[in-house]
Write a protein that binds this DNA or RNA. Structure first.
Lengths: 349, 349
DNA sequence: TTGTATGCGTTATCAG
DNA sequence: CTGATAACGCATACAA
């Protein structure tokens, strides 16, 4: 019932702790007789090593700290956290998840708490800025950033937002749309990834502009609505999407299609469309980004899916590399994919 | 830069480790001079105790294991986990979250892993069954169950589902609806809480029946659609809601209002309504449960809100009580509240 | 009021 | 091939 200690196991098997350890670790010379006895006891007592004691001895905790900006507002975060946690578990690592909610002080406290707990690595899914990341690195803890980078030093996984947004635009343009609105984060409000000098928002907006240019469609500033993806009610991004949608729909020459760079934003747009008595996709086509809420919306939303689970898994891969001292790829790039559902259709001619 | 050890702090302050500890813990007699010296060093080095070492010594890890059935599919779980984590953090506890995804073996592994890590308590937000809970208790680890109980022994927090569902029905009936459909989990498929012999599903369905009876409305079996809230695609509960919605809407005498006992289910119903060309709430009113997706749906969904954060906080309270050996209330009951949004309206007469 | 010494459970070194 | 034994960093009983 109660887990024995290594010492007790050794005693029961009539050998020393060193021998038990050798059997458990599978290295060093052990006679078959001794091995059998130890294995027998281990099995019988279902002995499991005390990770705390091991951590003290090896200064490794088999625990990873995962700092998230706000896991509750955007399902994106839970999904990558989930992917990370599952990958970690497979390798015997546990994950401690902490939300900073945009508060740099809470983020810093999290790093401190992680340090005290001897976590083997710290992963940021949106650091508030480089400070916390540097703080972690200063303690010689391997650090990883996911989706957005605030430093050049930490290994980093993200999605190719430019290509993803281009795909969204291609989807719309292929359906015959030419009057396409863009609704997304304002590049001026987000820091660029230091490594390449561009932010997620830069990529997405550039893709929009480039796609129009390539299709020979003039850019109409009225079709571009930028904001901040707000994480806190009452101006959460869904409300923001609603507001932008309203503005777009009262235009005399309103868009026939809208590209919202986040499903939550798109959810708000859907509400404004409904309120305006417009039908989707008959009157207006709508495409989102992320594939979080998309399948649950009405109508089911066509969207650019992010590989959230893979983002988490890759993040863990980088963390593990850091832990084991292997060189880690600095800037991993994953692919998005357009999932066509019911919110987009061919422009009636 | 590097965190010093207690011993180093003692050396720097020119005192013994015992004295440093006394200063840190604030108990025992310490001269002012010694106290000042120690505090000075602690501040200067920003010393923080090594929790792993402390854990080995005290056999407390200041870590709590939180086992969730599937944090990714229903935002309900993230929200209570978030509430729990925040409350825990305030008291210096970290939370390790593990998903079992309905798999009892994974759940068992989680318990084992938690035991190895010397977690101070284990919390279940839907245990798959009593086994894992008992396994945890057998290791003398305080256990808490949230929302659904599988044992009588573990302290338990939940919401009053009967009252919540009655409120939903009252909302609809007050609006003049009499032909009201019920869409929820099949009581036959869910284990009752052992303490009271009733399940969440029992409560909600009973509330539906009682409300109709009290209003003098005959129960029409065709209006009751039971199922399982499925957590895995492709039959996730949104698809289930869609399916049930379709069946309800092709009835010759279709409902004027629908009570879906989960926002995700309601999201699916909304899709079926849209597809059928029906307008909400003009043609059909819809009320959900949980308040997870509700605000993001089209139209914004009237729903019975669960106090998810509080559920998590209360769960932590019970866990802490268990850790500190205080008696914990066995069965905490929290209140729901109806949030009226745009999906319900008075029945046109 | 202060300090010494020991043990928590593992790991790993170093003699046998 | 095997077994003592010394850390890891902290908490604490006991002595001074």
């Amino acid at each position: 019932m109660k887990n024995p200690t290594l010492i007790e196991v050794a005693k029961m098997a009539g050998v020393s702790t060193a021998t038990v350890n050798r059997v458990l670790k599978g290295n060093g010379y052990v006679s078959d007789a001794a091995r059998r006895k130890v294995e027998e006891v281990v099995r019988r007592t279902s002995y499991q090593p005390n990770i705390v004691a091991r951590g003290l001895r090896t200064s490794r905790s088999y625990t990873i700290g995962f700092i998230v900006s706000s896991i509750t507002v955007n399902p994106f975060f839970v999904n990558v956290a989930r992917g990370f946690e599952a990958a970690a578990l497979r390798q015997g690592y546990s994950t401690i998840i902490v939300n900073h909610g945009g508060d740099a002080e809470r983020e810093q406290n999290a790093v401190h708490s992680f340090r005290q707990r001897q976590v083997d690595a710290i992963v940021f899914n949106h650091a508030t800025g480089p400070q916390a990341v540097h703080l972690a690195m200063a303690s010689n803890i391997p650090v990883v950033e996911i989706e957005r980078a605030t430093t050049q030093e930490a290994p980093f996984v993200r999605v190719d937002n430019y290509v993803g947004a281009r795909d969204a635009m291609k989807h719309l343009i292929d359906l015959g749309h030419r009057r396409i609105a863009f609704l997304g984060g304002d590049p001026a409000l987000f820091w660029p990834d230091p490594g390449r000098g561009r932010s997620v928002e830069d990529d997405r907006l550039a893709a929009y502009n480039d796609a129009l240019a390539e299709a020979g469609i003039a850019v109409d500033p009225a079709m571009i609505r930028l904001g901040r993806y707000n994480n806190e009610p009452p101006l959460a991004s869904s409300a923001e999407g609603y507001e932008h949608g309203r503005r777009l729909l009262i235009l005399k020459d309103r868009p026939t299609a809208i590209f919202a760079t986040c499903d939550i934003l798109a959810a708000g747009v859907l509400q404004s469309l409904y309120e305006a008595g417009l039908s989707v996709p008959r009157d207006v086509s709508l495409i989102g980004f992320d594939d979080t809420l998309a399948a649950n919306l009405t109508p089911p939303l066509t969207t650019v899916a992010q590989p959230m689970t893979e983002l988490g898994e890759a993040g863990f891969g980088l963390a593990l590399a850091g832990i084991e001292g292997r060189p880690a790829d600095g800037d991993l790039l994953l692919k998005t994919s357009v999932i066509a559902r019911a919110s987009t259709s061919r422009l009636p001619s």
